[in-house]
Design a protein around this nucleic acid. Structure first.
Lengths: 151, 151
DNA sequence: ACGGAAGTACGACTATCATCGAACTTTGAT
DNA sequence: ATCAAAGTTCGATGATAGTCGTACTTCCGT
């Protein structure tokens, strides 16, 4: 491999694609973790509750939307948030969906209140990664095997 | 009827729900038109290329996400953008997805570049409402009959 | 050279959702 | 009273996208 996968240019960023990428809780979680870390993170080092193949899919969607930049380091694929470029393309967007850490007198209902919305998560058996999710099933960080799909 | 449908409180706004509402091009177009108009608009007065029943569905999703407020005036259902509340709940979000009208020296790639993404639109036979969409099919504003679905 | 680690690719399965038409309701004119 | 306008509700349908497992590829130690 070695050859870095295709990344869109900043000028080619498409709002529709970006939103489609960000609407998925798992992908938004990836973006959030990258934003919080402030440094590159390997695909396998994320706290997400999906199988490897599914994770690959999510990273691909994020990359094609221009949200992350990927490059290899050994067998590991590192991911970096394309903060600056995204901010230039769609000012305020990442800030809006990134959990705020309690903003002084500001409203409480920020992205921090994003409980990773149990709704679709429950219906698909996804364990809420970080946040304050109730996590009724007790699952929260599987090692290798993906999430059990009830029903 | 008369009785106004259920609207979520500002404190109940959920990022996941809001994003799911905004990811649809038709719904985002509705929000955009409301934002541009600055005043209430009746359901039937929007420039969207879907049938009435589908439109009803979209308005419901927007309302349940807290993006719009609906109330009856005669047989017409008026829609208002809940700008202030949304801005308090998720600062910058609406600004980020609302087409900017060329912002001085700022980057060009703003939400204005959202060509309503032909991608899924084409695949579903949706006519791009406003914007600068190519609109290959020539359809752009159906009176009553909805969009033809090719294949 | 071998084996494991880290991902990717591919095909299959499901659930969701945008869409429509037809039937129904409500309201305001005529 | 009647009618039309404006929406809603109710299935049905079709496409998309998230998910998984298996098989395959690459790279790095040992």
């Amino acid at each position: 491999m070695e050859r870095t996968p295709p990344h869109p240019e900043k000028e080619q960023f498409d709002l529709q694609r970006v939103l489609e990428a960000l609407v998925d809780p798992v992908r938004r979680s990836i973006v959030t973790q990258l934003d919080a870390a402030g440094e590159d993170i390997a695909c396998g080092a994320f706290d997400i509750a999906v199988s490897k193949s599914t994770a690959t899919h999510h990273f691909k969607v994020l990359r094609e939307a221009g949200l992350i930049r990927q490059h290899y380091v050994g067998t590991s694929r590192m991911n970096a948030l394309r903060r600056t470029e995204m901010d230039q393309a769609f000012p305020g967007l990442l800030d809006a969906i990134t959990p705020r850490v309690a903003e002084a007198g500001a409203n409480v209902a920020s992205a921090a209140r994003d409980t990773v919305s149990a709704r679709r998560l429950q219906s698909q058996g996804i364990a809420a990664a970080g946040e304050q999710a109730p996590d009724p099933g007790g699952v929260s960080r599987q090692l290798d095997g993906p999430v059990v799909r009830r029903s």
